[in-house]
């Protein structure tokens, strides 16, 4: 079961495996919003968490593939959530684990060093013999084998620690009912969300990759394959069926769409459940 963690009305996926499944099994892309672990100070490639569109979240929930989780407790700004001190056992376990990790790392680093010395043993022996010859001593004093494990210096500061991305222990959280609008998940029942969701789901069911479309001024972008490798074909604008649509909006959307070699789709969901698609293309600009 994929876990989607709700934070201020947005769904976040923290697990690497879940993120992978969402993309590869469910053809959903979302957007990465965290800093990339390997190179955190840049914006070109980002890392976990993966933020999902409300529509993507809802589709995963409706498919029964995911659970919506709401963290409880930790928010300090809400009253009465500042709990008493945690059981000291947790801290003790953590300290113990740290100590254990230090010992093991020390041991491993010592072994690594030993292995390195072993590979270089011949060169070291040669060098030492040369030195002794220079000093005029006899050249065949055996190489001194020092006890590496005890003499090896591995300061505590050079121990490596993990800053885990995902919560390591399951934290205080509860499953959220996404069908009822709540403070944490305000989307259900919102008419614009309902429209968008129906259009999203229809496009997705046709086998497309559908992502958020803000970068081209639309609601969604429709890709024929994984956006990693393919360009988007359509810019989706969700418009209510009966509402008047300013001509200027059609012009600007169409103009932008043809400039980026995409087709603008005006989509509306009818009351009977059918979706109407109208494609707009600028004819004079081929």
């Amino acid at each position: 079961m994929i876990q989607i963690h709700v934070l201020e009305g947005k769904g976040f996926v923290w697990s690497y495996e879940d993120a992978r499944r969402i993309r590869e099994e469910f053809r959903m892309v979302g957007i990465l919003v965290g800093a990339l672990a390997r190179k955190p100070r840049q914006n070109i490639r980002l890392g976990l968490p993966l933020q999902l569109l409300p529509e993507e979240t809802r589709l995963l929930l409706e498919l029964g593939a995911a659970k919506l989780m709401r963290p409880t407790g930790l928010q300090p700004h809400r009253e009465d959530t500042i709990q008493a001190e945690p059981p000291p056992t947790g801290i003790a376990v953590y300290q113990q684990g740290l100590e254990q990790s230090y010992k093991e790392q020390r041991h491993l680093a010592a072994q690594e060093r030993k292995a390195l010395l072993d590979t270089l043993a011949e060169q070291i022996a040669q060098g030492q013999a040369k030195k002794r010859k220079k000093r005029g001593e006899s050249a065949d004093v055996p190489l001194q084998q020092t006890d590496l494990e005890s003499g090896f210096v591995f300061p505590r500061e050079s121990m490596m620690v993990q800053i885990p991305t995902e919560r390591l222990e399951p934290g205080p959280q509860q499953e959220l009912d996404w069908q009822a609008a709540s403070l944490d998940w305000p989307h259900s029942g919102d008419p614009s969300h309902e429209t968008r969701y129906r259009i999203y789901r229809d496009l997705w069911e046709q086998g497309h990759f559908v992502t958020g479309g803000t970068k081209f001024g639309g609601d969604f972008l429709v890709y024929p394959g994984d956006p990693m490798r393919y360009h988007a074909h359509y810019i989706v604008l969700c418009v209510p069926q009966q509402a008047p649509l300013p001509l200027y909006d059609v012009i600007s959307a169409g103009r932008l769409g043809s400039n980026v070699k995409k087709t603008v789709l005006l989509c509306s969901a009818a009351a009977d459940g059918s979706i109407t698609y109208t494609s707009v293309q600028w004819s004079g600009m081929q």
């Binding site: 690497y16 993120a19 992978r20 990465l32 990339l36 672990a37 390997r38 490639r45 890392g47 976990l48 300061p155 505590r156 500061e157 050079s158 121990m159 490596m160 620690v161 993990q162 800053i163 885990p164 991305t165 990693m228």
Partner: peptide, 14 residues
């Protein structure tokens, strides 16, 4: 892509 995402942050304690 997955290789990058899978990586965890590991830093020197010091």
């Amino acid at each position: 892509h997955w290789q990058l995402l899978e990586e965890e942050r590991v830093e020197r304690l010091g």
